[in-house]
Simulated scan of single mutants.
Amino acid sequence: MQKYNLPDIQAFLKVVESGSFTRAALQLNASTAAVSRRVSALEGALGTRLLNRTTRQLRLTDAGEQYADDMQHVMMALEEAEYKAQRTSQEVRGNLRLAAPLSFGIERIAPVLPGFLKRHPKLNIDLQLEDRRTDLFAEGIDLAIRIGKLEDSTLIATRIGEISKAYCASPDYLREHGEPRHPSELPTHRLLRYNLITAGDEWGFGGDISQGASLAWQLSANNGEALREAAIRGLGIAILPTFIVMDALRDGRLKEIMCKYTQGLTGIYAVRASRQFTPAKIKLLIQYLREKINRF
């Protein structure tokens, strides 16, 4: 039986998962040329072509498709064997890529990660903070934190906590424009919108998306902290997670309004790729985050 180089197989699978030598190289912390050499070495060892390469796309050959499927099962078996060995010694090691929304990651994830890493000093975490929805498969994300409605049914989600939201505006804005008492008054006001979710999901008032759809926006942005600063400076009314506006509400820079129309609690989820086996390091991190985050 031919002897295979495990890093060559891992490089090939990463190229298949990400769809690109460049993205695979970034995830493996290697050069594109090094990843290409590893795949070529694997093809040489097997005596067959696994990928058809063009300047625009990669396509698996029939042999490559079958080999990738078989090797994914082999890698899962290796991960499970590693988990069983580590479970015996109560030690996890290796790398884990974690993605989270920018504001939530800074405010709530980053402060608690050092405690987890002190428990597991041989584990390395690559934390990616950005408000766009990451592609776990293409970007090699092991675990992602998502807030609100989940859309991708191919992912496994674990609820680890929940957040509340508040309608708020600055005292100066409310003195100048008046304080709305009911959602029906909002079309006459300046509004600030978080544009990475639909208007109906953000301003839907108990599921009535038509209410949210009828509103106009003074400013839309893809980051909650940017909207908070705009609200503090009197630009308009925003609906934002309380962990973002808590300090401004306490010190009076913002005032909460329409409290009885505030939406219910929003779920915080840890999502991972759908696999029969979940590595110990991911299970432990999910459990730790559930303990630390809970409700904000």
Rank of each mutant, 00 (worst) to 15 (best):
E43R: 01
A41G: 05
S31P: 01
Q57I: 05
A41V: 02
T61G: 10
L50Q: 06
R37M: 06
T55P: 04
T32I: 03
L51Y: 06
Q57A: 15
A34T: 14
T54I: 04
G47Y: 05
T54K: 07
G47L: 08
A68P: 09
A41F: 00
A63M: 11
L50N: 01
L46R: 05
L42C: 03
R37I: 01
E65A: 15
A33H: 08
E43M: 03
L51F: 08
V35N: 00
A33Y: 10
R49M: 05
T54Y: 11
L42V: 00
S36L: 03
R53S: 10
Q57E: 14
V35W: 01
E65W: 09
A45R: 12
S31V: 02
T55D: 14
L51R: 04
R53T: 13
S31R: 09
S36R: 15
Q66N: 15
A34P: 03
A41L: 01
L46H: 04
E43Y: 01
T32G: 08
T32S: 12
R53Y: 06
R56G: 02
G47V: 05
Q57Y: 12
A34M: 03
L42G: 02
T61V: 11
D62A: 12
L50M: 08
R49W: 00
S36H: 06
T32R: 15
G47H: 03
Q57H: 12
A34I: 02
A63W: 08
E43V: 01
T55N: 12
G47C: 04
A63T: 15
V35Q: 02
S40D: 05
T48L: 10
T55K: 14
S40N: 07
R53I: 14
G64Y: 12
A33S: 12
G47Q: 07
E65V: 04
Y67H: 13
G64N: 12
R56L: 11
S36G: 03
R56A: 11
R53P: 03
G44V: 04
T61F: 10
E43G: 05
T55R: 13
Q57R: 15
